[in-house]
Design a protein around this nucleic acid. Structure first.
Lengths: 349, 349
DNA sequence: CTGAAAGCGCTTACAG
DNA sequence: CTGAAAGCGCTTACAG
């Protein structure tokens, strides 16, 4: 039973301060500060000497002190109600990674918070004097139940509903869907059906729109109506049976509004003895690998580039923090097609 | 094309400081500070007056200033290499939520970092003067490629390999597996097989151990050997066929080492015309709802309580930061069974 | 019960 | 090219 105490015996550790490096480099604190920050003019000799000493002493500037005088914390907040992680963690990883490169850190506050707890979390971030806030969520047509308009700091929305005069980033669903359907058309498919997600999600309708656009651009007509229901395998499964049972022409391709639906469709076809992609090609949406790689055959699908989305949002927020003017509105960022085997175009991975 | 500038026109906004509240409450800054922090003795009248003024002025203490003098940032770091999100986001959500209640915030650094970038991220956290660090990952038998021993601050490991003399938190895989198998036994099943995960994962072996223990405790013998392979549906699917094709007694229940495997097993049984749970009961592991709720029937499975794990780790870290002695070693935290329908015990949800 | 003063570790006019 | 000094917004001995 080993027990450990963590406070240093004999009081606090002495961490190297800028005084220490100044003293050892035989310059004033002023000069040390300037040397380390690359500001001011000074002899190259002096600067490199200070830098060397700092390295020798393993000096880490104290950002609390710096922040106090510069009125900046070099810190961001990320607020999300997604605890499930499918969308938020990639966004958060992209954000935090890009921010690290700029010397800023990000506070995470994740939870299915009701308004009150959200206030609490936001308040904690204000007390930490975050320089800016990014708000994220699990769908692009819902926001967090919190008013942020009088926050007095820049805010950016990612994968979330974005107020009128704010700046937001969401995947370009319409064009992503177009790309997916164009891929099918490029492979010679002509009778392309669409199985959509929940009708209450804006993303469902945007993806349907993209499907229709691609068809129209190529002089094709929709193969039946879009089939709306849940974002689930069960929906895909049932819709697939419906599509086949229904009189009229049988589709030679199906664009599915997410990977789970696509998975259900493929399962149904296995059961019906319909071959994918030979008889019918399938393309999904999300590139959720745990589904997309598990279907037989592996699924061709759209990737929303969530990591890049987080990065872009962070960079924009940094610009705002630095006072650069920025155009409000939501940016729709491009998605890319991941070709696997469900359309007959890919090579096995 | 609306363009917005974020820096306040006419210079910096004046944020309310403790001076402002002291002045308006007609006390010294000293007294204001003590009133707000609940320290020192003073008339109730004074204290409540200060508090009221603070509220009126919407005063938010500046934690950078406080941190500077208290040599504490009320801030933690969370380092993980999981960008996938399955395990880390629930842990992070539990951690950040519990920490908010204690007035501490958590920096997230997520990325599949090679050692060098990891150093960078850690360094950034050191410069922000985090009070402690939690290290997490995507499996309990791997650590991050980074040396943290000379960090000079408390560290806690969650869902990650934990060094000898450190403190760590992982789910109690053995007992979780025991519980799962006991559930099967309690339902009258006697011939219980086990489909395991990847043999290179410690979790696979721990869960096998739990399976054997529960059997032994009930005077039962294993129904065949544990079948090891990948953590995938494909593995479950194939293993199920193998189990049925193999001569010898047919199992009346299968304990699967994760939900994906269980899903594959159930799919195989559908195809073979074997009824779940009537002919064979299935229990999974992870409670990954996107799988566990999508199987037909919905899957009974073990939940690792990742959110609670994050919370426990954070609380322990706080104790360490406050200098309380703490026993080193890894704590195995209990998991709980989520009963759905794949064992014949649940009611439909 | 209350306050004046020092100090946490930096940056940045200001002066030389 | 370099430095002494003020100050960011707090907390906390120390003194009364």
């Amino acid at each position: 039973m080993v027990v450990e105490k963590w406070s240093r015996p004999g009081g606090v550790v002495h961490r190297t301060t800028i005084r220490d490096v100044a003293a050892k480099a035989d310059v004033s604190v002023t000069t040390a500060s300037r040397a380390l920050n690359g500001t001011g003019r000074m002899s190259e000799e002096t600067r490199s000497r200070v830098e060397r000493v700092a390295r020798e002493l393993d000096y880490r500037p104290n950002y609390m002190a710096r922040g106090l005088v510069q009125q900046r914390s070099f810190t961001l907040g990320l607020l999300t109600d997604d605890t499930y992680g499918r969308f938020t963690l990639p966004v958060a990883a992209g954000l935090s990674s890009a921010m690290t490169d700029k010397g800023v850190s990000v506070f995470l506050s994740a939870g299915e918070h009701e308004a009150h707890r959200l206030e609490l979390n936001l308040r904690a971030m204000e007390e930490k004097r975050i320089d800016g806030l990014v708000i994220s969520g699990k769908r692009i047509d819902r926001g967090l139940p919190i008013d942020v308009s009088s926050l007095g700091m820049p805010v950016v929305y990612v994968y979330s509903l974005c107020p009128e005069d704010a700046v937001g980033f969401v995947p370009d669903d319409i064009n992503a869907a177009r790309t997916a359907v164009q891929h099918l058309i490029g492979l010679g498919r002509r009778k392309i059906a669409h199985i959509a997600g929940r009708p209450s999600f804006e993303a469902s309708h945007l993806r349907e729109t993209g499907w229709r656009m691609a068809l129209e651009e190529n002089g094709l007509t929709p193969c039946g109506e879009a089939l709306y229901s849940n974002w689930t395998e069960a929906h895909g499964y049932e819709a697939a049976f419906h599509l086949i049972a229904t009189a009229g022409e049988r589709p030679d391709a199906i664009f599915c509004s997410n990977d789970q639906i696509a998975r259900g469709v493929i399962d149904a076809f296995v059961q019906m003895g319909i071959k994918v992609p030979d008889d019918i090609a399938i393309v999904g949406f999300d590139n959720w690998e745990v589904f997309a790689k598990a279907t037989r055959p592996p699924l061709t699908t759209m990737d929303m580039e969530l990591t890049g989305l987080g990065k872009s949002a962070g960079l924009a927020l940094l610009d705002m923090i630095e006072g650069k003017p920025i155009e409000v509105g939501v940016r729709k960022t491009p998605c890319h097609l991941v070709v696997r085997e469900s359309c007959g175009a890919g090579k096995p991975e």
